[in-house]
Design a protein around this nucleic acid. Sequence first.
DNA 1: GCCAACGTTGGC
DNA 2: GCCAACGTTGGC
Length: 156
Amino acid sequence: MPRYWLLKTEPGCFSIQDLANAPNQTTPWDGVRNYQARNFMRDAMRPGDPVLFYHSITNPGIVGLAEIVSEARPDPTQWDPENRHFDPASPAEAPRWYLVDVKLQEIFARPLSLPFLRSRPELKGMELLKRGSRLSVQPVDKEHFEAVMALIRQGA
DNA sequence: GCCAACGTTGGC
DNA sequence: GCCAACGTTGGC
């Protein structure tokens, strides 16, 4: 029984095109420094889980589909002093931050813009659309995931 | 354990 | 660039 997810990214930082260009179209989803997001990755994500890929900031919207392709493992950037996500307080024997590998499935020909998503009654209640929603790793209800894919398949 | 201060996110 | 919402930190 797969769970469904949404990953949020600033395209200026890492876009779906960057994922398309990555080796094997796969990337470690590193740099997440939020406990709730960490818990989802570490405790709930499983290989094979589908992922909606969301761009924030510029033309915010759902731009593609990806898949979780690994179990969670410690995020090495937490111990790299050169990395902007360096966390000197994270002990090596009890890593604070985790990541999973994410593989591209599809770049949508017509992304679903945030205003459009907001206009769809069947997506009401979706975490992404809640006021003040900032979580970069979110679970998505099955019904909402299927509604999004239906909108894509009908060329919304 | 409370809460003010601060930093970050992200829509607009 | 503005600002609302949220998370984290740290003094008490």
